[in-house]
């Protein structure tokens, strides 16, 4: 796996490089947003680790520019732990967010999840673990048994499966399922998420709530 690290702290870059190379990754790094973006263009990394506090531009800005032409998975690695900052990063298209100080083991696990998802996504099927969705008939099956869903529940579940393992923000879900005018109506979402949770009870899947940010569909 090719990993690009964009971080202005040389120690962090060195440590990450050591940790990643020991897992067999190829690592490139950049200490500025601008050079990081150039590197991303020329070397097409499989995943990018991005710091938010860069000397030349804000990390969210880097992410936005990157998203103009690329869908490469981006994991944010930052000291900022306020929900508003996290939310902005997810809205801009981050795939995951880890706050510093971080545990290397957890970071590796998150990277692995991203990689796995990337592979699954290529298959273009709406499948996640024991859950299979039929986009044509709007039907779902869990553990090979049909799962009864209302149209709204189906739409919501489809959104979560499409981005399985990744945080989907409340706004994104509301926009996708209820339309852009419903962006403030988060109580709908809370209610339907609870319905879905009840229906997924007992299976290996879990709809996890990220406080103040959104939901994430995970395998337990």
């Amino acid at each position: 796996m090719n990993v690009l690290i964009i971080d202005d702290e040389i120690q962090i870059r060195r440590l990450l490089r050591m940790a990643l190379e020991s897992k067999g990754c190829t690592v490139r790094d950049a200490d500025k947003g601008q050079t990081g973006l150039q590197d991303a263009i020329f070397h097409k990394p499989d995943v990018i680790l991005l710091d938010l506090g860069l000397p030349d531009m804000d990390g969210v800005e880097v992410l936005k520019r990157l998203r103009e032409w690329s869908s490469v998975p981006v994991l944010i690695l930052s000291v900022r732990d306020q929900e508003a900052v996290k939310l902005a990063a997810f809205e801009a298209g981050a795939d995951d967010y880890v706050t510093k100080p971080f545990s290397t083991a957890e970071l590796m696990a998150r990277l692995a999840a991203i990689q796995r998802r990337q592979g699954a996504h290529d298959a273009a099927s709406l499948q996640f673990g024991p859950l299979v969705l039929d986009p044509v008939h709007h039907e779902a099956a869990l553990d090979e048994r049909p799962l009864k869903l209302t149209p709204t529940e189906y739409a919501l579940l489809a959104q979560l499966v499409r981005h399985a393992g990744k945080v989907v923000t409340l706004k994104q879900l509301l926009r996708a399922v209820w339309g852009p005018q419903a962006e403030e109506q988060s109580h709908y979402l809370r209610v339907y998420a609870n319905h879905l949770r009840k229906k997924l009870e007992g299976s290996a899947l879990e709809i996890k709530n990220e406080p103040g940010i959104g939901y994430r569909l995970e395998e337990k």
């Binding site: 702290e9 120690q11 962090i12 440590l15 990450l16 050591m18 940790a19 000291v79 510093k100 100080p101 971080f102 545990s103 290397t104 083991a105």
Partner: peptide, 12 residues
Amino acid sequence: TPIAVITAALEG
């Protein structure tokens, strides 16, 4: 940042 470095180094 220094704490992050120490933690990561210790884990390494």
